[in-house]
Computed example of a mutant assay.
Amino acid sequence: MKKILAINPVGTDIWDESDYSYFKKHASGDTEVEVVSLKDGPESVESYYLEAYASPRVLDIIKNADGRYDGFLVNCFADPGVRAAREITDVPVIGPGEASMLTASMLGHKFGVAAINKKQVTALEIKVMEMGIIQRFAGARAVNIGVSSLLDAPQETVEEVIKAADFLIGERGAEVIVLGCTGMAYLAEEIKKRLTVPVIEPALTALKLLETLIDMGLTHSKEALYSNPFKKQKEGD
């Protein structure tokens, strides 16, 4: 049995029950998923400040839960705290943003992202450069609907995502579309029906990648990029 802890890096538990049902529906038969949120955190993560605010709280949860789970999923496209978390545990830690964009890069020459807002469009350019896949990035297009409002008018959100995707496919040459928020998970099936290219839903992608890494006995290297902050480093390391 694989035990995975999914962390919603927000200060509300309104997503926890529905996210648990979603993960349970899609997880492998031998996977047990628990979902928690932050006791104190932002309503959503839509800026660098809010990402920085949420990150240490995500790390506290992982640090306190380490040893009880086979992997951690930080359930936000911004991947808050993911890199740091990989240094404080020996099990894999996956973020939906990185996981979905790397997956998309294997399914077509270029991928595009249906982003939440204009700020995310710019931030994604920086992120894909850091990931080393900028040449595979067709760009991002904002739907301009806040995370907490995505499901207020689901059909309206779907239409805005389709508009963004059509632009990225027709004008930017995208062959794969990534949904730029895990809050779009519940709209993914409808969006997939409307598009002729692969559509990547980040939360599901992160879950399946994490399951695969656990099954293969793989976790993050501590040779260089990631280190153990609790272990005294030798001179020259």
Score class of each variant (00 low, 15 high):
residue 160 E to S: 04
residue 233 Q to R: 15
residue 41 G to N: 05
residue 222 K to M: 06
residue 2 K to Y: 03
residue 94 I to P: 00
residue 31 T to E: 06
residue 150 L to P: 00
residue 99 A to T: 00
residue 198 P to V: 09
residue 92 P to N: 06
residue 236 G to K: 08
residue 159 E to P: 00
residue 36 V to P: 00
residue 48 Y to L: 11
residue 8 N to S: 06
residue 218 L to W: 12
residue 89 T to H: 09
residue 42 P to E: 08
residue 185 A to R: 15
residue 182 T to N: 12
residue 142 A to T: 07
residue 185 A to Y: 07
residue 66 D to I: 03
residue 51 E to M: 11
residue 42 P to S: 12
residue 232 K to G: 09
residue 215 D to P: 02
residue 169 I to W: 03
residue 84 A to V: 03
residue 80 P to E: 01
residue 7 I to D: 01
residue 100 S to E: 04
residue 226 Y to C: 05
residue 4 I to T: 05
residue 237 D to L: 11
residue 89 T to W: 09
residue 54 A to W: 08
residue 56 P to N: 12
residue 164 A to D: 07
residue 158 V to A: 01
residue 91 V to W: 07
residue 198 P to I: 09
residue 87 E to V: 04
residue 40 D to F: 14
residue 24 K to F: 01
residue 144 N to S: 12
residue 192 K to S: 02
residue 216 M to Y: 12
residue 128 V to L: 08
residue 56 P to E: 09
residue 189 E to I: 01
residue 89 T to D: 02
residue 1 M to D: 04
residue 13 D to Y: 08
residue 101 M to R: 03
residue 202 P to M: 07
residue 223 E to S: 13
residue 90 D to R: 14
residue 68 R to M: 10
residue 40 D to V: 15
residue 203 A to I: 03
residue 213 L to Q: 09
residue 97 G to Q: 03
residue 23 F to E: 02
residue 185 A to T: 10
residue 55 S to C: 13
residue 110 K to I: 03
residue 208 K to G: 07
residue 12 T to N: 13
residue 59 L to S: 04
residue 230 F to S: 14
residue 221 S to W: 07
residue 92 P to V: 06
residue 2 K to D: 02
residue 37 S to W: 04
residue 122 T to G: 03
residue 85 A to L: 07
residue 79 D to H: 00
residue 183 G to N: 08
residue 18 S to V: 14
residue 177 I to G: 05
residue 132 G to Q: 10
residue 139 G to E: 01
residue 81 G to D: 03
residue 38 L to W: 12
residue 164 A to G: 12
residue 79 D to I: 00
residue 84 A to T: 06
residue 99 A to G: 03
residue 171 E to V: 02
residue 53 Y to A: 10
residue 153 A to P: 00
residue 220 H to E: 14
residue 160 E to I: 00
residue 234 K to C: 13
residue 59 L to T: 03
